[in-house]
Structure formats: C-alpha cells, structure tokens
C-alpha cells in the first residue's frame, strides 16, 4: 500500500488568438494516503479542475509526475464526477450507467445499481433519456455512474452544486458510508468550507493561479460528531484564524 503522490512542477495553457499564456499550476505537491478523504478548497479559477483533470489522466500536457501506485492509466479504477453530469444524451439513464462497467449484468453489479438508484431516488427514471430529466436528477445519475465503478480513486468536482440541500446531505452521508465500508481515496473539490469540514480527513487549501498548496489542515472533529452544527462552525472559525496566519507566513517563506 503506497501513497499516491501528485507532483506538478508546471501546467501552462499556451496562448491562443484571444488569450495570453496562463500558468495554472506551479510547484504543486500533494500526497494522498490510501483511503484518505481529501477536500480541495481554493478561490475560483485557481486551477482545481485543471488539477483534477491531470489526476484523472485526461490532461497529459503538464510537467511533473503523478504517481498513482499500482494504478495504471488503463485501469478502470478511477471514477470522476464532473461539475456537470456529462451523460451521453443518446443513451438512457441505465445505459449510461452500464457503459462504465465491463460486465453490467453481473449479479453483484445489478444489485449495486439497483441499490444506488434507490438511494438517489431515481429508480423511476431509469429508462429516460438525459434530455428528459432535470439537471439535479442528471447529477444524481452521474454520481451513480461513479459509484458503480467502485473506484480506488474517486475524483469529485463540486458534485453537489445545484442539488437541494436535503438530497445533497443524504448523498454526502451515503458517500461517507460507502467510503467507510469500501475504503478508497477521494479527492473532492468544493468551495463550501462547511461541506469540506463535514466530509474530509484533511483539507488542502490552494492559492490563486498559478496555484500551489498554501496550507493543509487535518479535520480533528471525530466523524460521529460532524452532524453537530456547532462543532463544524467552531472548526470553521479556527480555520479562519489559521488562514490569516498562513497568508502572512507564505509571504515570509517564499
């Protein structure tokens, strides 16, 4: 069991006709422990999605190394929940889910799919096409699609945006349950610090572009206490203090 290491020395978007060159990531180092739940927090436009794309293996145009241990690029054990659902519009909900599996009709897969559809309350739209369902529903389908893969690394890029809070909270809980029964590493992008505190083992703060890691904080609240609003709020306040300190700090160390 080795850790996953992410080491990006430089990621640049070359200049195009209308934009100048843009360095999205510079000297970003991040280690993910096996089965760790890490939340990435940072200002918008700081390259979080770029980072996710690189880890997912979609974007190979960068300087640096991504070491996902025994996971090879062809392994079907990475799942990625994008900011948008990204379902194939010409395949029904269930067909979209089946597509990511090698053997969708294996008993353990059908059972898992049924269970997840049930949980997300989308069983009734299984034969609908993505164009016929709401965005919130489509997001839940995308989540099912990611979960059925039973990934070793699960990448989630603000997956609960635009879901109503009740549904979001239920899925968060389920995400934690699945994660605890079937441990895997999760890298989770959010702009909602409370969500990060609720979910993460560790919160990683990224700087403005060119982004790097400015701070990492272990969430010390025990998991069974995290439904308590007060402890979350208290932790958030303590983060604020650290946050102002690290800002001064990073200036000094650079």
């Amino acid at each position: 069991m080795t850790d996953y290491s992410i080491d990006i020395t430089r990621k640049e978007y070359p200049a195009t006709a209308s934009t100048s060159a843009h360095i999205a990531i510079k000297n970003l180092h991040l280690t993910l422990k096996q089965n760790e739940f890490v939340c990435l927090v940072g200002p918008s436009g700081c390259g979080k999605t770029t980072l996710m794309n690189i880890v997912a293996g979609i974007d190979q145009n960068y300087e640096g190394t991504i070491n996902l241990g025994t996971l090879s690029q062809t392994d079907n054990k990475v799942a990625y929940v994008f900011q948008e659902p990204r379902l194939l519009p010409w395949r029904s909900v269930i067909q979209n889910i089946h597509l990511v599996l090698d053997d969708p009709n294996a008993p353990h897969n059908t059972k898992l799919i049924e269970e997840l559809l049930e949980l997300m309350e989308i069983t009734h739209i299984r034969d609908h096409y993505p164009g016929q369902i709401s965005l919130g529903m489509a997001r839940r389908v995308a989540l099912v699609r990611a979960f059925v893969v039973q990934p070793q690394i699960l990448l989630m890029d603000e997956p609960f945006v635009s879901l109503d809070e009740r549904t979001a909270q239920r899925i968060r809980q389920r995400l934690l349950e699945t994660w605890q029964t079937q441990p895997h590493t999760i890298l989770f992008v959010t702009h909602d610090i409370r969500e990060a505190i609720y979910l993460a083992d560790r919160i990683v703060f990224l700087s403005q572009a060119p982004s790097n890691v400015i701070n990492e904080v272990k969430v010390t609240i025990p998991r069974h206490n995290r439904t308590d609003e007060h402890s979350i709020e208290a932790f958030r306040q303590s983060l604020k203090r650290i946050g102002s300190k690290t800002k001064n700090y990073s200036g000094a160390t650079k």
Partner: peptide, 16 residues
C-alpha cells in the same frame, strides 16, 4: 470534448 473527457476518465478505450 466534455464527453470525450468523460470517456477518457472512465478508461473507455479507443473502440468503446
């Protein structure tokens, strides 16, 4: 391209 990225991240492979 967003769908192509999706296919890429789930390791669909060329044929799929």
């Amino acid at each position: 391209t967003r769908l192509l990225e999706m296919a890429d991240s789930y390791r669909f492979g060329r044929w799929k």
